[in-house]
Design a protein around this nucleic acid. Structure first.
Lengths: 211, 211
DNA sequence: TTTTTTTATTATAATTAGTAAAAATTAGGG
DNA sequence: CCCTAATTTTTACTAATTATAATAAAAAAA
């Protein structure tokens, strides 16, 4: 493996390229140029090529890229299709939305169990996914070798859940609680803060109107 | 206003600082240093200071920052407390979760109406927010001077909704549909792609395990 | 064969982050 | 009450990262 650090923004763009390519592939297009990828994903051709160049040579000069082939490569790079084992903690509104979210399943991230501390929910199914008690997380993760956990619990419980998950050997956490989690370095974390996005938008609107 | 471009990552960090300060303020802390802010938000002291320095001098040398004062400044910078008028398009699972999302309301972003094309939902209330028909969006945005719209509709409808919103004079769009929207430059857009985050996580796990 | 298209690679520029030095404030000791 | 030491921000500078542009190479078309 190449020993250059890959910028995280580049990785996130790869993900977007892949989504675009999947869509394009369905519509029967076989070959595509960096310019077309850029147009479809809101970037520049140079950046598309640069992002891909981090990982290898996937195109043919004078021709472009083979859609299916390139998409396969990107999926490999991103670790999609590895059949990650994923659980969700928190069966609230957001949790419920996430179990339904088509974008997860279609990309190989299938939530197989939901955990909640509300005993009225335990034993039921949330959009066809079984709901279990929080105190069963540890055993479940260990026994089923769960890779990734999605945290969608209220702020104040997030760190406790995270600690529990870390102890049980989870590899990655996607955190929707708007708090900064304290997690050991070898466990990967991504924070999705919905309010932050709205606030950046707000800032941009204000700046834009001032100019 | 200063004429230096502010990095978007800096803005997003400001948002996180503010959230942290709000929390700290509640617990009665009056003064705080950049180091403490960094520790609480997962950054470095230098970066905290740098981010703040883009906008002015908020601290006192040898002392630190006044928690309440600094938070107020950041909120001003981000445009929080401006009482943005926000609507949501799409009353599905995700939409439902978003109307409930505490992080929005507590930061001044109160969703005042929801729009959906399912006539069975129209006229009802989604978590206390009225649901209206899609074809009323234009008039509603114009008449009520709506600032921001949140798009939480299926992919294939997202661009149409966006076009409609743009025509009606919206200032900003928070897009949850995993597609690249075509929007004029003077309208601000933020894309929140949940699957992308999971894929970056996946990539990081793979890379981490290889090392 | 020559021109056009398009990628890969290298080089340059721009942006962003980090470091170190300077300045200001507080607090303690003489 | 003044001086010194400790703390912490501000500012200027340096380093690292990321993006853009330019160039070279390969393939296809004319």
């Amino acid at each position: 493996m190449k020993n250059v650090k890959i910028p995280e923004v580049a990785v996130s763009r790869l993900s977007v390229y892949s989504r675009f390519l999947t869509q394009i592939e369905k519509s029967g297009v076989v070959r595509i140029s960096s310019g077309e990828i850029a147009a479809g994903t809101g970037g520049t051709p140079a950046q598309v090529r640069k992002d891909l160049a981090y990982f290898g040579e996937f195109g043919t000069r004078g021709v472009g890229y083979n859609v299916a082939e390139l998409n396969k490569e990107i999926c490999n790079i991103l670790g999609i299709g590895k059949k990650w084992r994923v659980i969700l903690v928190g069966a609230g509104n957001l949790g419920s939305a996430l179990t339904q979210y088509a974008g997860f399943k279609s990309r190989g991230f299938d939530i197989e169990a939901v955990f909640d501390n509300d005993l009225n929910k335990v034993g039921l199914r949330l959009n066809d996914t079984p709901v279990m008690a929080i105190n069963r997380i540890y055993d479940y993760v260990v026994e089923n070798k769960i890779d990734i956990a999605i945290i969608a619990v209220p702020d104040k419980h997030a760190q406790d859940i995270a600690d529990l998950l870390v102890t049980s050997g989870i590899k990655g956490i996607l955190n929707f609680a708007p708090v900064t989690l304290n997690i050991p370095e070898d466990v990967q974390v991504r924070n999705v803060d919905l309010a932050v996005n709205l606030e950046i938008l707000s800032f941009n609107i204000v700046v834009n109107n001032k100019e």
